[in-house]
Amino acid sequence: MKEKITEYFTSKFSDVLLPQRDINTNLLYFSIKKEALPKVVEALKNHPDFAFTYLNDLTSVDWLGKREPRFEVVYLLRSPKNKHFRLQLRVPVGEGEEVPSLTGIFPASNWPEREVYDLMGISFTGHPQMERLIMPDNFIGHPLRKDYPLEGPGQDYLIEDLLTIHVNEDIAS
């Protein structure tokens, strides 16, 4: 199966493939240009032999100081038709760059994309609701970035806002 997918991928998407790094894994993966992500995922999902119809995971990696571009968004696709064969797509992303959203292809990507945005600061173009999911709306920064201070940037402003909200609610009632 690996050989068949690799042959298909390299013949059909040679123009969007990026150089592969040598990593110690038995998982088949491809690094691709972010602009081609929806086209590639759609083709893999609709291909009659592969049928990668299940988005298993969507996450990101911060390579601060080790690689350029700094970030990588990682997609894990599965093919139930082929005994849940797994394929990983890696999309390098620079600081301030955006990645196309996959919500139109995999509606289940909605929350993981928002989580990556909230915790890493990577935006997804075309996402129907690109806003924080886990952290409060007024939270400063993205806590999973490697340069985020361990003690936080000073979160007193969060407590002050909560106190103000509750004091105003108590006055109103």
Rank of each mutant, 00 (worst) to 15 (best):
K4P: 15
E7H: 15
Y8D: 11
F9N: 12
S11Q: 11
K12T: 07
D15A: 12
L17Q: 12
L17K: 03
L18Y: 02
R21A: 03
R21P: 10
D22T: 00
I23G: 06
N24D: 15
N26H: 08
N26K: 05
L27E: 14
Y29R: 02
S31M: 09
S31R: 00
A36V: 00
E42W: 08
A43Y: 11
L44W: 09
K45Q: 14
P48Y: 10
A51R: 12
L55M: 04
N56A: 15
L58V: 01
S60F: 06
V61G: 01
D62Y: 02
W63P: 04
L64G: 04
G65Y: 04
R70E: 12
R70M: 06
F71D: 07
E72N: 00
Y75H: 13
Y75I: 03
L77G: 09
R78Y: 12
P80L: 02
K81N: 03
H84G: 15
R86C: 14
L87F: 07
L87A: 06
E95N: 13
E97C: 02
E98L: 01
V99D: 10
V99R: 01
S101A: 04
L102T: 08
L102I: 13
T103I: 11
G104I: 07
I105N: 08
F106P: 04
P107I: 04
P107C: 12
A108F: 11
S109Y: 09
S109K: 09
N110I: 02
W111A: 12
E113C: 01
V116I: 03
Y117D: 07
D118S: 03
L119V: 00
M120W: 08
M120H: 08
G121N: 13
G121M: 09
I122D: 12
I122G: 05
S123E: 10
F124R: 08
G126R: 04
G126S: 15
Q129A: 13
P136K: 00
N138Q: 03
N138M: 06
F139N: 07
F139T: 00
H142Q: 09
P143C: 08
L144Y: 07
K146L: 04
K146D: 11
K146E: 04
L150C: 06
E151H: 11
E151F: 10
E151D: 14
G152H: 04
P153N: 14
D156L: 00
E160P: 01
L162W: 10
T164R: 05
I165T: 09
I165L: 13
V167T: 02
I171S: 15
